[in-house]
């Protein structure tokens, strides 16, 4: 065999090898690019779904104030010009503590997402932590000291605090300020006989913007801060500025009802016990409703927030893909964070 044949064979081998490496490189590059384009398309598609839920009022447009199921799901306020203004009642109907709440299957049917997991979480922007630091009793009065910290997304923030103590007919109010360090102290006095049934309601308002207002509740009887009501005997369900409550259980007797916001506190005067309209307070603040009632001979207090935030509804996405779209939304002129999660697209 001539030498040139060996050389030709050797040269061809080099070219074929380089061509194969080149094709493999080109293939992997193109594959990455195609996958990236698919990701962008998927993200845009899911974002469009999320945007539609946030910016569309749904059908009927006032489904939040009705007890019927929506035909089309959307959370936007019916009358707002702001694209991120959500309806307070629609938010309440996502909370499982509300007796008119939507179930997850109903939510999926109304949103027409048959093959896509959906999760919605609404939370307050300012996180308020209440920690009891000290207490002592003198005569008929017990003094409690609390350390209160306020932060936004883990960053300490200065706030103006408005705290109320509600213990049956005993109501008191304390004003204080949290400095830039995000930590402050308050001391309050409560009649010792009322401690077992007292609630501390704290509203924190940022000095940057009145719409940055959050609340926190401390239950004296359980000595803990409650993010959701521990007692649900009355099944308090606010909707359309009317508080529905279940007072039909034997032994339950509703007594007083109160409404609190950052700047206001009022007694709800209503002869109707199971449906109590409450005033539309002119205040950029979440509303807290407290009802005191007798269960047998024992006295209790139950609370709820309006809108009923924080809340979480939908799939938990454990072990599956979760695409989170986070929004800053306005509900009744108060700013909240809404995280809308969507699952992976079906193949």
């Amino acid at each position: 065999m001539p030498t040139s044949s060996f050389d030709t064979f050797f040269a061809c081998t080099i070219i074929v090898t380089v061509a194969l490496i080149g094709m493999a490189f080109l293939g992997s590059t193109m594959q990455t690019r195609i996958a990236s384009t698919q990701d962008i398309n998927k993200d845009s598609y899911l974002k469009a779904i999320a945007d539609r839920i946030v910016t569309n009022p749904g059908s009927p447009t006032d489904w939040g104030t009705k007890t019927a199921l929506p035909v089309d799901f959307g959370l936007a306020s019916n009358f707002s010009c702001n694209p991120f203004e959500l309806d307070m009642d629609k938010i309440c109907r996502l909370n499982k503590l509300n007796k008119y709440s939507l179930s997850y299957p109903e939510l999926l049917i109304a949103s027409k997402l048959n093959n896509l997991a959906l999760g919605i979480r609404v939370s307050q922007l300012i996180t308020v932590n209440i920690q009891q630091s000290n207490n002592f009793t003198e005569g008929n009065v017990t003094s409690f000291s609390f350390t209160i910290s306020t932060s936004i997304d883990s960053k300490p923030t200065s706030t103006d605090l408005r705290s109320y103590v509600a213990a049956d007919t005993y109501l008191t109010e304390i004003n204080s300020t949290i400095p830039d360090t995000g930590v402050g102290n308050i001391t309050i006095q409560v009649p010792t006989a009322r401690i077992y049934n007292a609630l501390l309601i704290v509203f924190a308002r940022s000095s940057l913007d009145d719409r940055l207002t959050s609340y926190a509740i401390y239950n004296f009887a359980r000595s803990i801060q409650e993010s959701t009501p521990s007692s649900t005997d009355l099944a308090l369900s606010p909707l359309d500025y009317t508080l529905s409550l279940n007072d039909s259980s034997p032994g339950l007797k509703v007594q007083d009802k109160y409404v609190f916001s950052y700047s206001n506190q009022q007694t709800i005067s209503s002869n109707m016990s199971s449906q109590a309209p409450f005033p539309k307070l002119i205040d950029t603040s979440p509303i807290i409703l407290v009802v005191s009632f007798l269960n047998g001979t024992d006295q209790f207090q139950e609370w709820t927030a309006y809108p009923q935030v924080p809340l979480r509804i939908g799939a938990n996405f454990e072990g599956s893909e979760q695409n989170i779209f986070s929004y800053i939304v306005s509900v009744n002129d108060v700013l909240f964070r809404l995280d809308l999660s969507l699952g992976d697209l079906p193949n």
Partner: peptide, 15 residues
């Protein structure tokens, strides 16, 4: 025989 060396050089440049 050095005839095939040109082809190797060609292959190198092509690569």
């Amino acid at each position: 025989n050095k005839k095939g060396q040109v082809r190797v050089i060609e292959a190198f440049f092509a690569s």
